[in-house]
């Protein structure tokens, strides 16, 4: 059974479309990252998967069930974000007790151990926690629930570096001991690169890429050298990013589909080839550093509209 299956999932909020027909599927028991820039539709997609939102069109399935209004999906999945709302009349410890009552796989020992490790006060209240503490507490619930589908939406908001590190370690350890499907959306892709098995990249409500982390790491390549050293065939390649270094040299980030022959030629021309990390590839790919709308262009005042490098749709 596929853990998650999406067919042409579309979500509209009034006139605004947050997701344009996203299709993908996820195998069980994997850690998958969901990346995308702000407003790419990550949260919308995750909320549809846990049944908090209803897709406007298309079909989302979690373990073969449509998530919206589905008790089975709700019992087997959990959605953790920094907006979680718990009754203020309950203390932190009582909230964990409630979790134990509701989730059949709940590991209360793990919950209490993490609770103590991160120094929570049993009589504390959720609404009195700082942003980082709140995220940490929510993370404990997400881990302890041992839900078949565990979704973390920006789980590290407000956490300091040490806690983030602890969280990733805890996540990995618990995942290895009790494999389950974990979906993780984060801004800090560089931190979770080694944790993830697959990555899904969303851009402006579209699925840009769904690939294994291995492929992602070799997805892009950086080519830098003198302008005249660039062979003619380079023009036909997909440029993710291009940066001029002075009048004579430039660096081009392009999709790594260079053949061995092409690589040889580049090397002969004295052009340097270097690897691009997954997180950098993500940044280039989602157009953060692209010609159009690139921050440098904003400051230099000439926005190179329309022409030139454009990220090709994948």
């Amino acid at each position: 059974m596929k853990a998650v299956q999406c067919k042409e999932v579309t979500k509209k909020y009034g006139r605004r479309t947050a997701l344009h027909g996203v299709s993908f599927s996820m195998e069980e028991n994997k850690i998958i990252g969901l990346a995308g820039r702000n407003g790419a539709g990550k949260t919308t997609l995750l909320k549809i998967l846990t049944g908090l939102l209803k897709e406007s069109d298309g079909e989302a399935e979690v373990y073969g069930n449509r998530p919206f209004n589905n008790l089975l999906v709700s019992a087997n999945s959990i959605y953790i974000d920094d907006q979680m709302n718990f009754p203020t009349s309950l203390t932190l410890k009582e909230i964990l007790e409630e979790g134990r009552r509701f989730y059949h796989n709940w590991d209360h020992t793990l919950a209490m151990n993490l609770f103590d490790y991160f120094g929570f006060h049993p009589k504390g209240h959720h609404n009195e926690l700082s942003k980082g503490k709140e995220s940490t507490f929510n993370m404990i619930i997400g881990l302890a629930s041992r839900s078949a589908l565990t979704i973390f939406d920006e789980p590290t908001t407000g956490m300091d570096a040490a806690v983030r590190k602890d969280f990733y370690r805890a996540l990995l350890k618990d995942y290895l001991a009790y494999p389950r499907t974990i979906l993780l959306s984060t801004h800090h892709l560089e931190e979770v690169e080694d944790l993830l098995e697959e990555i899904i990249v969303l851009q402006k409500g579209n699925l840009l890429l769904h690939t294994s982390m291995e492929d992602m790491k070799s997805y892009a390549v950086a080519v830098s050298g003198r302008n005249e050293s660039m062979p003619e065939w380079m023009k036909h390649k997909v440029f993710l990013y291009e940066e001029k270094q002075g009048p004579y040299e430039k660096t081009i980030i392009l999709e790594n589909d260079l053949t061995t022959v092409e690589k040889e030629e580049l090397k002969r021309n004295g052009v340097q080839l270097s690897a691009v990390s997954a997180s950098d590839a993500f940044v280039y790919m989602t157009g953060e550093a692209n010609g159009k709308g690139g921050l440098d262009d904003v400051f230099s005042g000439h926005i190179n509209s329309g022409s030139g490098q454009k990220t090709s749709q994948l």
Partner: peptide
């Protein structure tokens, strides 16, 4: 991990007791 053995009645029962504790301020 995945469990299909979820009964609505059971969940409703849990929720009623949860609401009792959560909304005690009424």
């Amino acid at each position: 991990m995945y469990s299909a053995d979820i009964s609505t009645a059971e969940v409703v029962k849990k929720q009623v007791s949860y609401k009792w504790r959560a909304y005690i301020s009424v």
